[in-house]
Design a protein around this nucleic acid. Structure first.
Length: 538
RNA sequence: GCCGCUGUGGCUUAGUGGUAUAGCGGCUGAUUCGUAAUCAGCAGGCCGGGGGUUCGAAUCCCUCCAGCGGCUCCA
């Protein structure tokens, strides 16, 4: 008996396909195996009783999908790799393989050379040890919880990207995290990207969690009346979160997550030339983020053969503007929605790339989501759309920042991201009040200063200030109270076992910190000003 | 998801079949200190969960979960 059990599926096909599948199964069984086959009517409610022997809980439902025979044959794509130098020279990628540079590390990975035997990435320990972020066992794999210090860094990074996007002319929006698979464009877009999605049922609607912020922004663009005069138009969203149901074994630390925060900008362009101009600007935002975050980046530019043949000069131009050699990958044909993209990557402590900022030219989505404008002649245009993440996901940025510290003699974060920027260490209880006053003035100036008022030795408090990676540490005692001058240990200028100390007034300290963080976002402390009140998370 | 390794108080860890180690952290007390750990006392663990073998299991076996390495993948 072949019985249609529609309610067992979370992803129903059309009644037509169901009936044809049921017929097919019936025919195949009776033909091949000589069974007597009957088919229950389709589309009716019916009742039947079935008796069989077995454990009461042994019922199970299995999903059977077409096997290999029916799978679409994977397209054979050819990849060609080479390097362009800023001077416009084309070089063999293999020539870089043995170099000890970040670009060489990227090239080895892209060309598929095995890396050294892996060890646990340093950021996985650091992210917990520094009380930033940790695994949440009560959630799904790859969903993390953020402690105040980590939350502060996240928020500062979000502030940073927002500021860059705003000065570039992007318009922030916010869109839903889940979408209805009943919508044709959503279903198509989602289907292209395989099974790595969170899907679920809401009432009787099949839903998915977004894996990027494209859906919402495309939907806005679709519903807009777009004038070519207002192009290029840039919409920006910090997608908290984007969800990708990565395979369990692939999820790790802050590098690969199932829920991550993607700064996502989409630029609706007038035409390809327009897209190329914006691409160039956005690539520069990517390089700039590497400088501002103090994480060196290397780049790979990928495009189709057709694109390269037509725009080779332009490709050389963006490498020249980048000022560093870049790996170039030419694909024999287009397999994804993009015809050209650039990926910038930091390199982790084991020499493996952490792919971060990206810009892509999408030539598919305007069609799929019916995003269009009309020319003066009345022609309908579905223009190219740029996808850009100026920094890459916030989690990966933090990953890169932490990995980067492994190469430093004295590890530290950029001062603008340090959870505590100035640590004041009173020598004895009678100095706490004075230290608090200084701290309050630093706080008022926009500096994250805290006071270690705990009943501990100066030695211990100084040690722990170092373990907190505080960029500026000042011990406050009788001497300071008398002279008003502070002895400040500056972490960035220190060497191992050789702290660099400088005498400065309170105003000079404020100036020094503010100069260092100039142009970067400011946020107050997320933890108590008095360390005696700071709880331990780890 | 596949193959392999790992899982002992909050953290780091000793313990390979016979009563669960220690340090840090926490709490209490003493100490009021000048640039990387002041001293003492106390509390805290059914050894990742479940099942099995055994007189007896942290230790051996099975299974599940989680973490890491390597695949595949990263749209």
């Amino acid at each position: 008996m072949i019985y249609p059990y529609a309610h067992l599926s979370s992803d129903l096909a059309s009644p037509e396909s169901a009936v044809s599948a049921l017929r097919g199964i019936g025919e195949a069984l009776s033909r091949e195996d000589g069974f007597v086959v009957k088919r229950a009517p389709f589309g009716w409610y019916k009742a039947f009783s079935l008796s069989c022997k077995g454990h009461p809980l042994s019922e199970l439902s299995r999903t059977i999908v077409p096997g290999e025979g029916a799978a679409a044959p994977k397209k054979e794509i050819e990849h060609e790799f080479f390097v362009f130098t800023p001077e416009g020279e084309r070089k063999d990628a293999a020539a870089y393989l043995n170099e000890n540079t970040p670009l060489a590390a990227l090239i080895r990975k892209e060309l598929g050379y095995p890396g050294p035997e892996g060890v646990e990435p340093v950021h996985v320990d650091l992210m917990r040890a520094k009380e930033l972020v940790e695994y949440e066992p009560r959630s799904d794999v790859g969903h993390h919880r953020w402690m105040p210090r980590g939350k502060l860094i996240r928020d500062l990074l979000a502030d940073y990207v927002l500021a860059r996007v705003l000065e570039y002319g992007g318009m922030p929006v916010e869109t839903p995290v889940m979408y209805d698979l009943g919508d044709q464009a959503i279903a198509e877009h989602a289907a292209k990207f395989g099974e790595r999605q969170y899907r679920f049922k809401s009432g009787n609607r099949d839903m998915m969690l977004r894996f990027a912020a494209c859906f919402g922004m495309f939907s806005i663009m679709h519903d807009m009346h777009i004038s070519p005069n207002t192009l290029p138009m840039k919409l920006y969203e910090l997608s908290t979160y984007s969800f990708r149901h990565e395979q369990k074994g692939e999820v790790i630390g802050l590098k690969r997550l199932r829920a991550f925060t993607m700064p996502d900008m989409h630029t609706l362009c007038r035409d390809v030339d327009d897209a190329l101009a914006s691409f160039e600007e956005q690539l520069m935002m990517g390089w700039k983020s590497g400088e501002d975050l103090e994480t060196p980046l290397v780049g790979v530019f990928r495009c189709t053969r057709d694109f390269f043949d037509q725009y080779e000069l332009w490709v050389k131009g963006i490498v020249a503007k980048s000022g560093v050699p870049m790996l170039i990958e030419i694909l024999s044909e287009r397999t994804h929605y993009w015809i050209a993209k650039v990926d910038l990557a930091a390199i982790d402590a084991q020499g493996r790339p952490i792919e971060n900022p990206t810009v892509q030219i999408d030539v598919e989505s305007a069609d799929r989501f019916d995003i269009k404008y009309y020319t003066a002649e009345g022609a309908e245009v579905h223009p190219p759309i740029l996808h850009c993440s100026p920094t890459g996901s916030i989690e990966r940025v933090i990953c890169a920042l932490l990995e980067n510290t492994a190469r430093m003699e004295v590890p530290s974060l950029p001062t603008w991201l340090a959870p505590t920027q100035v640590r004041l260490v009173p020598v004895a209880e009678r100095h706490v009040c004075f230290a608090e006053e200084i701290g309050a003035r630093l706080n008022a100036a926009g500096i994250r200063a805290d006071v270690d008022d705990r009943d501990e030795s100066v030695n211990k408090k100084v040690r722990e200030a170092g373990m907190d990676w505080a960029p500026y540490v000042a011990v406050i005692g009788d001497q300071e109270a008398e002279t008003g001058r502070l002895t400040v240990t500056i972490r960035k200028l220190s060497e191992k076992k050789k702290p660099y100390k400088e005498m400065m007034s309170e105003d000079e300290l404020i100036k020094a910190v503010m100069m260092e963080v100039a142009g970067k976002p400011l946020r107050p402390l997320y933890t108590p000003r008095l360390l005696s009140m700071k709880p331990r998370f780890i």
